[in-house]
Amino acid sequence: MLVVNIAVLVGVFWHKIALPPYVPYIHLLVDYHFGFTKRALIGAIIALFTAKVPVWLVFALSGTVWLVTAALFVQLFRRTFGFDEKQLPLFVFMAGSPFFLKNFMHTLGHFDIYGCLFAIGLLLIPARSLGYVLLAAMASIALVLIHHIHLLMYVPTIAAIVVLRHYLVQGASRHNVAAGIAALAVIGVLFVAAQFYGTMRVPESEFIAHLQGRMADPSQTNLLSFAYIWYQPLAKEISDTWARLPHNALGLPVFVLLIWLHRPLWRYFRDLIAALAIETHRHIVTAAIVTVSLGYLVMFAIVFDYSRWISNWAVCLFLILHAVKMLPSSKDTLPIAADERKTMVFGWIVTLIPRVGIVRPF
């Protein structure tokens, strides 16, 4: 299954680089030239190093980020579970899931993977000091500046990781609680600023002219067709989402099926939570999962990239599972049984699905 997953990843990559990177490319062009702007951090960093942005940089940058994310996840899994034979089924259901690395390959250039990367980093480093809380806050701020929707997409998962790895282990002192509250306040204010004050204040023609000036090949004006999103208010995004809902909702049964195919993993996750030694920890983990899920439910009502939201929701649960494994437990949790026929069938189906998509399934 692991070998087939690698082959599928290669196929998804070759398919992806043949497609025009409309949204990913324009995100590399937008910077802070006209003042504070939403979705502009990555473009602003690139502007520090080069005045002209070639199209191939989309795949070079996002491919590098994908490789780093995949390598760190392997390291995280090795540290949390190990790579003995009994843990390989769990690794297949995570790393080989169409929700995870395969879908990140399909969405190369989009900003989702940065949230996953930062969350994995926070799962790998020590969480003993107040510096851990501050580092998580800085990562969340960077994510909101990359794209403000990260407030709902990965910031809640990062907050859950901080609670599970720092506050439940080190305890809640006056200083670290105050730091956590202050961090949440700053992130919230930054989100409001990006959402309501980060839109373009100059005419769209002037904005596009600036973007063309940053293009290595200004003749490819078709790659600027999504410039309108820097002018679109929240109300317009919501109305567009609800207008497309009847059509996009047709994919919901497919999402349910994909989630059900991961049943061995969810069953293991349930058993892992039930095995926690402290009852309060079980309640907090459950509350964290509900909070993260509610954030994605809100995203469903605002932006219609449903395949991406479902995929990232599953990835967030994968990451929370690792954080739960780090908590003290009262008993060992039985690993996913590789010799069960249903598990084997589910594993092969999950392996052969190349990705979930961006808006509608596949």
Rank of each mutant, 00 (worst) to 15 (best):
R270W: 06
D240R: 11
F255A: 01
D217I: 11
L234S: 12
G295R: 03
K102F: 00
V162Q: 01
V298N: 04
L276V: 13
A301R: 12
N103M: 03
I42P: 02
E206V: 15
G213A: 03
E85N: 03
D31H: 05
S97P: 07
Y296L: 04
G11V: 05
V10L: 15
A160I: 04
I187P: 00
L151P: 06
F59C: 11
V58I: 15
A277D: 13
L252M: 14
V202L: 11
Q75A: 15
I146T: 11
G82W: 13
I181K: 07
A95I: 14
I208F: 06
Q232P: 06
L145G: 00
R165C: 08
M200L: 15
F100W: 06
L117G: 03
H106A: 08
A288Y: 06
M105N: 05
G43I: 03
Y167A: 04
A71K: 08
P89R: 02
V12D: 03
L294E: 06
A71C: 12
A159H: 01
G180N: 01
D217R: 14
G131R: 11
W66C: 03
A323N: 02
G251Q: 09
K102V: 02
A178T: 11
P98H: 05
P328D: 06
I208T: 13
R267Q: 13
I113L: 12
A179W: 00
N248M: 04
V23R: 01
W230R: 14
G121R: 07
G11Q: 09
A337V: 13
F49Y: 06
L101D: 05
P156M: 05
F118N: 10
L164K: 00
L327Y: 06
P24R: 04
H322Y: 10
G11A: 12
D112S: 08
Y132G: 07
L117D: 02
A288L: 14
D112G: 02
A337Y: 13
F36N: 14
V3Y: 09
A136M: 03
V303C: 10
L265N: 02
R78I: 05
F93Y: 13
I26V: 12
V65W: 01
T80G: 09
H150G: 01
P203H: 12
R128W: 07
A40T: 08
L257R: 05
V186D: 03
L245N: 01
F269D: 02
L184V: 14
L223H: 00
H27T: 14
K325A: 15
V58K: 10
F191L: 02
F81K: 12
